[in-house]
Design a protein around this nucleic acid. Structure first.
Length: 690
DNA sequence: GAGCACTGC
């Protein structure tokens, strides 16, 4: 790897500087820090191509930048563009990230490098947090947030450049954003002068259409009036493997490659396929521990259950080793683990000990753990899929893609040369898919459709997605939106229901529940229920204290069902509670802005259950003689999940929030309703039989 | 009487 030499020397250089700075600390700190940043910036691989990049951006409306880990593209390119004059007329350089932490940490770093206060020239915006000001010129944000902004300003007119970072991850948000940007760019470059002259009576709902002839460019928002729209530069940043996909999508856009900076990682394969990858994992952990030099081990497993069993097995075998070799510590990490426990993986091991981190996918991109020298990759991953026929989203365990295997092995080369043990033969690696199936091909599309419709894009099947979602999945989701009253018979966004639903940052069913609750005078209560349903369970039951947590839970139980239980906080996950509170205050504000009256039904919670029936009617189920339930819309036989407060009570007619398939079809978060309410409140689905 | 990968608005 040619970049290695320069990387090492750069490191020595900066260490030397740090020492010198310590001596001058009192007098010259700000200056020294700036100088340090300057040195660091110049040492990044991307610095060598600054001029080339600026020239390519000048000559091309769309550019693909391919850069591996450590190239510096995320922090540097926006600064180059700023210096290159792309903010001159008040334009903003927007950089999107799939994850919130990335947006925040990169923005902080860049503000420091620029020597400005965060939120001034450099800022960030994520849900619940807007750290920008009128002077902000470089703005980091989540891609989902930019999509929301597009609902208010469909031209994204305040941005002169939009950089879509980590595009290879292909989240739903990224894919929808790419489609939108393509349309916006076209409109801004050719339709601008026409559009500004459009008769305003034609403009409705901030329409943004793909065709730009005559009155169809009705996409004029008030804020665009009298404003001269400048062309939009789009930059797509991606890791190397799939640059061609992006280039083709943007009409053969140019791609520039930027060298990465990573330490070399030795990849080792097994000779034969493993029949039991858990056992193979265990053997590999101990093999590394006995034979290899110091350095921590990162193991990629598929879920909590595997992590806990490997942890148990390691502890069972440890006593078989000689005493001096027992210095091995395990640390689990997965997203539902409370943050205090997650934090433990970041603590350095005591002297002489080796850490083994047992992780899910969370360690692939979301969390970077220092000290990792060895990666064990069994090659499996648990993913959510979508079955259009039933609407179920089952989790299944599948083989990783090549890109994913590469990402995992890269985790061993962040601080020095490392090793990655792939627990399958090299011939198997060659058979893996190049990249992971994009999320848009395996998820429920109702929110995507609602969003596109609100942007004025009516032809969803004809929409120019980078990868077309399944036709059946589109139709299924449109059906759902129609039954909820969000779409008209002509598949247009309905006014006001569809319009209001699109404005709320929630699942369509939850938005509908808020709209109905505002009419039934129980919005106060429904805002709480919906906020709680929108987060992972706030109840946390560690295995070792299962009984205790059950007793604590019982004191909250409402005999009317789980939704009412959520209204009534000892075994509570504080991260979930905070998240629910944030969502609650956001949607309450949204509701008020939309003119909803936030009133309470007081002690009589009957109207609340009627609202639940009126919005979750597609998730209604009837008890059958054998105590199981029949889900009315899918016809599936389902069972109440044992975690439900109604598990033993088994009311005749219920609505549920979600259906999960494990050993059985389990329904979760359930409320008792009256069967007759369905015909009364959802006649579009349930006609009374004569 | 069960166990759910990861994000995001």
């Amino acid at each position: 790897m040619p970049s290695m030499a320069s990387s090492n020397s750069a490191q020595r250089q900066s260490n030397h500087n740090t020492d010198v700075n310590q001596l001058k600390k009192l007098k010259a700190e700000p200056f020294a820090r700036r100088q340090n940043f300057e040195q660091h910036r110049k040492s990044l691989p991307i610095a060598a191509v600054e001029k080339v990049l600026l020239e390519e951006v000048r000559n091309n409306d769309t550019l693909i930048v391919v850069g591996e880990t450590g190239s510096g593209k995320t922090t540097q390119l926006p600064q180059y563009l700023n210096n290159g004059g792309y903010c001159r007329d008040g334009g903003i350089i927007g950089i999107t990230q799939p994850r919130r932490v990335a947006a925040v940490t990169v923005a902080k770093r860049v503000a420091e490098e620029c020597g400005v206060a965060l939120g001034q020239q450099v800022g960030y915006a994520i849900r619940f947090e807007d750290v920008t000001s009128r002077s902000t010129r470089i703005k980091y944000m989540t891609d989902g947030l930019l999509l929301r902004e597009a609902l208010l300003d469909s031209y994204l007119s305040k941005y002169s450049v939009i950089i879509v970072d980590e595009a290879h991850e292909r989240t739903v948000h990224t894919d929808v954003l790419l489609g939108l940007l393509k349309t916006v760019q076209k409109t801004r470059s050719q339709g601008v002068s026409d559009a500004v002259n459009i008769d305003h009576r034609e403009a409705k709902n901030g329409m943004l259409l793909e065709k730009h002839n005559g009155s169809e460019v009705a996409s004029i928002l008030k804020q665009c009036q009298g404003k001269k729209l400048s062309p939009l530069k789009i930059i797509i940043m991606s890791a190397s493997l799939d640059a061609r996909v992006f280039s083709e999508y943007f009409g053969g856009a140019r791609a520039v490659h930027v060298q990465g900076r990573q330490y070399p990682v030795d990849i080792l394969y097994t000779r034969q396929p493993e029949t039991d990858y858990i056992d193979a994992t265990l053997i590999t952990i101990f093999q590394i521990h006995m034979e290899e030099g110091p350095g921590d081990i990162l193991v990629f497993l598929t879920g909590q259950e595997e992590i806990e069993s490997v942890e148990r097995l390691v502890h069972e075998r440890l006593p078989q080793l000689s005493e001096s070799k027992r210095k091995l510590l395990t640390f689990p990490i997965f997203s539902s683990l409370p943050s205090e426990k997650q934090m433990k993986v970041f603590m350095p091991a005591p002297v002489g000990f080796r850490k083994v981190i047992l992780a899910t996918n969370i360690a692939e991109t979301s969390v970077t753990i220092p000290g990792i020298k060895y990666v064990i990759d069994p090659g499996m991953v648990k993913v959510r899929t979508y079955e259009a026929s039933t609407g179920i989203e089952p989790l299944i365990i599948i083989k990783t893609s090549k890109a994913q295997a590469l990402q995992r092995s890269g985790r061993a080369g962040r601080e020095g040369p490392g090793k990655c043990y792939r627990l399958y033969p090299e011939s198997e690696f060659d058979k893996l898919k190049d990249s992971t199936t994009p999320e848009i091909k395996r998820c429920n599309l109702s929110n995507v459709i609602l969003h596109l419709k609100a942007l004025g894009i009516d032809d969803i099947i004809g929409f120019d997605f980078i990868e077309q979602p399944d036709r059946i999945a589109i139709i299924k989701s449109m059906e759902l939106l129609f039954l909820l009253g969000a779409l008209t018979e002509e598949s247009k966004l309905s006014d006001p229901v569809g319009q209001k639903m699109a404005r709320l940052p929630l699942d369509p069913i939850y938005s509908k529940a808020l709209i109905i609750a505002s009419q039934f005078n129980c919005l106060e209560e429904m805002l709480i229920v919906v906020a709680m349903l929108s987060v992972e369970s706030i109840f946390y039951a560690p295995r070792e204290k299962l009984e205790e947590s059950r007793i604590a839970l019982k004191s909250f139980a409402s005999p009317q069902g789980d939704h009412l239980t959520l209204l009534n906080e000892n075994f509570i996950n504080s991260r979930s509670v905070k998240h629910a509170r944030d969502i609650h205050s956001q949607i309450r504000r949204n509701a008020e802005q939309m003119g909803f009256h936030v009133t309470s039904c007081g002690d009589d919670l009957l109207p609340l259950r009627r609202c639940l029936a009126a919005s979750f009617f597609l998730n209604a189920a009837l008890k059958q003689p054998d105590g199981t339930y029949r889900a009315l819309s899918s016809g599936l036989t389902v069972q109440i999940h044992p975690s439900s407060v109604l598990f033993r009570m088994k009311p005749d007619c219920i609505i549920f929030d979600e259906l999960v398939r494990t050993n059985h079809n389990y329904i979760r978060n359930i409320s008792r309703i009256d069967y007759l309410w369905l015909a009364e409140l959802a006649p579009q689905c349930y006609a009374l039989q004569e």
